[in-house]
């Protein structure tokens, strides 16, 4: 019941933030093309990046949790967060790529944040590939994936530091001109983070059911 209410609230939040973003919160530009609405992609791009990062943090916590307690729930939570993280990292890279083409005239360039975002997606996808290719017991699968989850998490700050050796084309920060823009941004942030949390929750439950079925049959 709580989940249904939260899903409903989430839907309202998403619709409201979209409406505000496309009306009073609309961002125009880039300078070369003032009528372009491409900058509005920021309302999906930034929250997706935060959400993908949060999924990675959940993956780390769940991986450590599994290695300490050997409880199956931690493993399923890690799996769910890796799946949701892959989706948000894909959205982050796709929206970033569209923005990059419109703003800088190229689909991708090796700049620190772009490299970090691409690596985030790669690490999540490799986690899923590794998981699907391990043969043996569920415990072995969970242990190996937990080890990879921790090593992969350590890689994220390393790529951010190594970015010092690349030229940064990315916007350092974004300033909003109108209160409507700020409202739309925070609402989209809240709605996408809530969506991510709900997706992890639902997916973990689905994996638990699947797991129980596999144990019985």
């Amino acid at each position: 019941m709580i989940r249904r209410i939260l899903l409903f609230v989430n839907l309202i939040l998403i619709l409201a933030s979209m409406w505000i973003a496309l009306t009073i919160g609309q961002i125009r530009g880039p300078q070369a093309n003032p009528d372009s609405v491409v900058r509005n992609i920021i309302y999906a791009h930034v929250p997706s990046s935060i959400c993908a990062m949060l999924c990675f943090v959940v993956l780390l916590v769940a991986s450590i949790g599994y290695l300490i307690t050997s409880k199956r729930t931690w493993d399923l939570l890690a799996m769910a967060s890796a799946e949701v993280g892959t989706v948000f990292a894909a959205i982050l890279n796709l929206t970033g790529s569209i923005f990059s083409r419109a703003e800088w005239g190229m689909w991708w360039t090796p700049s620190p944040r772009l490299v970090s975002a691409a690596l985030l997606w790669f690490l999540c996808v490799v986690y899923l590939i590794l998981r699907s290719s391990i043969a043996g017991s569920a415990d072995k699968k969970a242990r190996i994936c937990a080890v990879y989850g921790i090593i992969a998490f350590l890689d994220v700050p390393m790529v951010y530091i190594s970015a010092r050796y690349m030229q940064d084309i990315h916007q350092p920060s974004f300033s909003f001109d109108a209160a409507g823009q700020r409202l739309a941004f925070f609402m989209s942030m809240a709605s996408i983070v809530l969506l991510g949390a709900l997706l992890i929750w639902i997916r973990t439950d689905l994996l638990k059911i699947k797991n129980r079925l596999e144990e019985h049959f």
Binding site: L119, L130, S133, A152
Partner: peptide, 27 residues
């Protein structure tokens, strides 16, 4: 040691190692 427990072995090792080593290659 990880890939010995998988079905694909060597081919998986390359993607695991490349993904993790990526940040070191720039410096």
């Amino acid at each position: 040691a990880v890939v010995q427990l998988t079905r694909t072995r060597g081919s998986l090792l390359s993607i695991l190692v490349l993904a993790i080593l990526a940040p070191m290659m720039v410096p």
